[in-house]
Amino acid sequence: MAKEDSVKWPEVEEILQKAEKKELISLIREMYTSSAGDRMLINSRYLGERVKKKKSKLLEEHRKIIRGEFPPENESGKIRHAAAERAISDYSNASGDFVGTLDLMLTYVEGGIRYANIFGAADDEFYDNIEGMLERFCELLKTKEGQKYYPHFRERLANACRDSEHIGWGFEEVICVLVGDIEEFFEGEQKDTAE
């Protein structure tokens, strides 16, 4: 058998041309269930607008859950971080939508910043959760898949840094350092591609 990386598309195409329809459907099902990228490709290619509308509705439902944990929607001042974080995870698992997941992560961070501005000092768990989510967001944005979405989030990141000013407890510094690092990363990427 030929080494996997030495097999060329014409050889694969010839094998697939001879395959039974049931075999091909089974192969596609396996790809669909095991890879978010393959699932997104198949959905977008064959289900198009219907899937986009469903994803959009699902995204808004999960955004509402996250916003419901922060003011002004939540007037109690008690945040259920696990519920908000679960909404992000549930959306990601259900949709395979990378950019939507990033959007929800940043929505969570923005909610935390609003909360800190309204209610002032919070406990260490609060700061750790918000900072950790922003850190994970930035890590995903630096990935090959995430890099193309930086322009989509650039302004919201800058606003997060600005809006965290004067919160105190080192929170502003962490938020602005993470935002500054991601800005520096992408400025470096732009310089590298220009050269």
Rank of each mutant, 00 (worst) to 15 (best):
G120D: 07
D163Q: 11
A116W: 02
F153V: 05
Y46P: 01
I175A: 02
L24R: 05
E155R: 12
D124S: 14
Y91V: 05
D128S: 10
E173K: 08
D163G: 07
E183N: 14
E13V: 03
A194Q: 11
V174H: 07
E172G: 07
E110R: 04
E85H: 11
G180K: 04
K21N: 12
V51F: 11
K57L: 13
I175K: 01
P10Y: 00
D181A: 11
D38V: 10
R80M: 12
R50I: 15
A160P: 06
S95M: 11
K191C: 04
N159M: 13
A194K: 06
A160M: 02
L16K: 02
E187A: 10
L102I: 08
P151N: 02
R114M: 05
D103Q: 08
R136C: 09
Y108A: 00
V174W: 01
E195M: 13
G111A: 03
D123Q: 01
F171I: 02
I28L: 15
Q17V: 12
V109L: 02
L102A: 03
I15M: 05
G188H: 08
R29Q: 13
L140A: 05
E61P: 08
Y91W: 05
P72T: 08
E184N: 14
F186A: 07
K22D: 15
R29G: 11
D181Q: 12
L134C: 06
M133Y: 01
A94M: 15
L27R: 08
A2Q: 14
K191Q: 07
W169V: 12
F70E: 03
V99F: 06
V99W: 04
D192C: 05
M133K: 09
E60L: 13
Q17I: 09
A121V: 14
E187I: 10
K144M: 10
R86W: 11
E165A: 14
D90K: 11
E110P: 08
A36V: 07
K55V: 11
Y115H: 11
E131F: 03
P151I: 02
H62Q: 14
L141G: 06
A158L: 14
G180I: 03
E173I: 10
T33M: 15
R136A: 10
F186L: 00
A82P: 07
A160Q: 06
S92Y: 05
I167V: 15
L134P: 00
Y32T: 05
L134A: 09
R67M: 07
P151A: 00
R39V: 01
D97G: 04
A36Y: 07
A158I: 13
F153W: 01
R136M: 14
